[in-house]
């Protein structure tokens, strides 16, 4: 099989705090490596061409589209996927909790990417304006929510008070 994973590891990455080694083909994307080899299927593929943001993960602290990175390029990297953002007992992160509170998801397919992007956004800008929130989310697509609940979730996670329509006060 051409994508066999036996042999000398060509990639070692830390994923959610655990060292993972593998021998992905050079052309295998990091997204596929995480999903297939690491069995972390929370990273979703909505386009595989870098637009939808569903595959967003943290790589060395940066929010990155894992469909645009080859696994071999991640050699030595410290990666956090959506699975690494909640506690093992299911306790949600602030952003995850806010998504639930604000009805920020319906089908949930886009959600892992949004949670990672929002986490990055609030880390870099803990009190974003409406405009900054929208800009910060513009690299992630959602087809279900019309973004209303997602924007509200960012505001809740940032500790801003919001009214029923999601306007911050």
């Amino acid at each position: 099989m051409a994508d066999t994973t036996v042999g000398i590891p060509t990639v070692s990455v830390t994923v959610n705090g655990v060292l993972r080694r593998g021998t992905p083909e050079p052309r295998k994307t990091l997204a596929d490596f995480l999903r297939d080899d690491c069995e972390l299927t929370g990273t979703h593929l909505g386009c595989e061409h870098g637009v939808c943001g569903a595959c967003t993960i943290f790589m060395d602290g940066e929010a990155v589209r894992s469909c645009l990175v080859f696994a071999v390029q991640a050699e030595g990297a410290d990666i956090t996927t959506i699975e690494g953002l909640s506690a093992p007992d299911g306790t949600l992160s602030v952003v995850q909790k806010a998504m639930n509170e604000a009805h920020g998801l319906q089908c949930g397919f886009c959600t892992p990417g949004f949670v990672v992007s929002i986490t990055a956004l609030l880390r870099d800008n803990p009190d974003p304006s409406d405009e900054e929130i929208r800009q910060g989310l513009s690299g992630n697509l959602c087809r279900c929510t019309g973004y209303q609940g997602i924007i509200k979730a960012v505001k809740i996670a940032a500790g801003q008070s919001v009214d029923a329509n999601g306007k911050a006060h």
């Binding site: 299927t41 959506i82 699975e83 998801l105 949930g108």
Partner: peptide, 8 residues
């Protein structure tokens, strides 16, 4: 949501 926001 519990499973969906956590990637499960």
């Amino acid at each position: 949501d519990l499973r969906l926001v956590t990637g499960h």
